[in-house]
Design a protein around this nucleic acid. Structure first.
Length: 174
DNA sequence: AGAGGGATCCCA
DNA sequence: GGGATCCCTCTC
């Protein structure tokens, strides 16, 4: 479960879609070594790597290997569990259905008010953003990742099968 | 289906 | 410094 405390309120959601990026992976930001942008990706595990893309979107990753190793998991979607009204306000779209609030990595960061201030944050200790709890066993689907061109066939995307909060439904295997 | 959007990075 | 690229989103 991803949790964000904002103005004394808890925004929370079940993580239902992720993508993996490993050091040997040409699609990874870390593939060509450390830069100012991807610095956090080489930090200790279970920390946030937040980056800006396509001029409009922030995306949240969780580092997934030892310090010095550039590896992370992109958090692509959450099923909203609490703070839905605040999420809807943050999206600025009163018309959205619950399962659309945090569907897609850019939308997720908007709904949870996640921005560059969390780049490098310790997700086990940060007072305003953390990941906690155990995940109920659900059927997990595997597919290629979305929106990349290098290593595009690698089955590195993992999602809760059948969950409507999962993005990229056209690309899903059933 | 197609445009918009801006930061980043590589190579001159 | 320039330009290709980019782990996308919304509207048409």
């Amino acid at each position: 479960m991803l949790v964000r405390e904002r103005n004394g309120e808890l925004l929370a959601g079940r993580i239902v879609e992720t993508e993996a990026y490993i050091p040997s992976d040409p699609a990874s930001h870390a593939f060509r070594g450390m830069t100012r942008r991807n610095r956090a990706m080489f930090g200790p595990p279970f920390h946030a790597y937040v980056y800006f893309i396509y001029g409009t979107n922030w995306c949240l990753n969780v580092t997934s290997d030892a310090a010095g190793v550039g590896a992370a998991v992109l958090v692509r979607a959450c099923e909203p569990l609490s703070g839905l009204a605040a999420m809807r306000a943050l999206r600025g779209r009163p018309d959205l259905k619950d399962h659309e609030l945090a569907r897609g990595p850019g939308n997720l960061c908007r709904a949870f008010a996640i921005g560059p201030e969390f780049d490098g944050a310790d997700l086990a200790a940060d007072p305003l953003l953390w990941i906690a709890g155990t995940q109920a066993a659900v059927p997990v689907g595997v597919s290629p990742r979305i929106g990349i061109t290098k290593a595009a066939a690698e089955p590195m995307r993992f999602y809760a099968r059948g969950n409507p909060s999962v993005s990229g439904r056209r690309a899903l295997s059933p």
